[in-house]
Design a binder for these strands. Structure first.
Length: 288
DNA sequence: TTCCAGGCCCATG
DNA sequence: CATGGGCATGGA
């Protein structure tokens, strides 16, 4: 049973629940008072108390304060970011539904690997796969209220597996992609750290050299791990909401036209806007 | 049971 | 550049 020496601070515009459950990260577990999970190799506990409609007191381990503050992107100026969004009805509804959602800064490999395993999978199943890989190939970090906490397995650990052992995670044909990507990285064919220094297009191109990584997964990694807040992943949900709300009654745009529109129309923080639309669309469906 | 899911890859026009 | 088919699995 892990114990926590907590510190706290009052944060404006932070909804921990939505931030952890809006489809950017998939492993945090709910406990009585808050959430437990891992940031790299550190077990972390988070608790949020609402003070006013947009102010939250966030409690987190004192000795890991810097790590948590960086991970949750508490430095992102959400008010300023929101002000750059267009003000059409759909976007306004999404902003209201997504108050306090922050694009977090995830570890590179963990984010990349998770989204390689995400293609044509529902969020619930991506989570299941992530927890399986952690429990079987990650490092045990401790237990809290029955929740077992593991780190995400290293590149090398995954690279050492066989396609069969990975398929046991329910990966199906994605197992080969994950294995090959891990091996490419393990052999130094691509260096994830070095991508930090590249322009968006170069970075995207580099990521797409990895097995199982195409434009959509690359944009997820750019947005959720490389802080490229204008990167717009277009999945089935975003495509649907764009077509219904911004291309209604018009001839079907090509993928290229859709991308160009998203990047231009939603502005400098189009990745943020995209995430709000994604979560908004999913909450709408669950309500029906 | 059927439908669908945070796509990628490769082969054709 | 764009379109179409194949690919595995499990939740809803």
């Amino acid at each position: 049973m892990l114990t926590w020496n907590l510190t706290s601070q009052v944060v404006t515009d932070l909804d921990v629940e939505k931030t952890l459950n809006c489809g950017q990260v998939f492993h945090w577990q709910k406990v009585t008072q808050g959430w437990v999970g891992a940031i790299d190799q550190k077990a972390i506990f988070l608790k949020a108390q609402l003070k006013t409609p947009n102010k939250t007191e966030l409690f987190y381990p004192r000795e890991k304060a810097m790590i948590v503050e960086r991970y949750l992107a508490l430095d992102h100026p959400l008010s300023k970011i929101r002000s750059t969004f267009p003000t059409d009805p759909t976007m306004c509804a999404a902003i209201e539904a997504c108050a306090g959602i922050r694009i977090i800064r995830q570890p590179l490999w963990e984010c990349l690997a998770t989204f390689i395993t995400s293609s044509m999978k529902q969020v619930a199943h991506i989570r299941q796969i992530s927890l399986y890989l952690r429990a079987h190939f990650g490092s045990y970090l401790g237990e809290f209220e029955g929740a077992q906490i593991y780190s995400y397995p290293s590149i090398h650990k995954i690279a050492q597996q066989t396609e069969a052992t990975l398929r046991a995670a329910g990966l199906g044909w994605r197992a080969k992609n994950l294995l090959q990507a891990a091996q490419q990285l393990d052999q130094g064919k691509v260096n994830l750290e070095s991508i930090h220094g590249l322009e968006d297009d170069e970075a995207r191109e580099k990521l797409c050299q990895l097995s199982g990584v195409g434009p959509k997964v690359a944009n997820c990694v750019l947005l959720f791990a490389y802080e490229r807040l204008s990167a717009v992943p277009i999945d089935v949900w975003i495509k649907r909401i764009l077509l219904q709300n911004y291309f209604h009654g018009q001839p079907q745009p090509t993928e290229r036209q859709l991308k160009a529109f998203a990047r231009e129309y939603f502005g400098a923080y189009s990745g943020y806007a995209q995430q709000y639309l994604f979560h908004y669309a999913r909450t709408l469906k669950s309500k029906r």
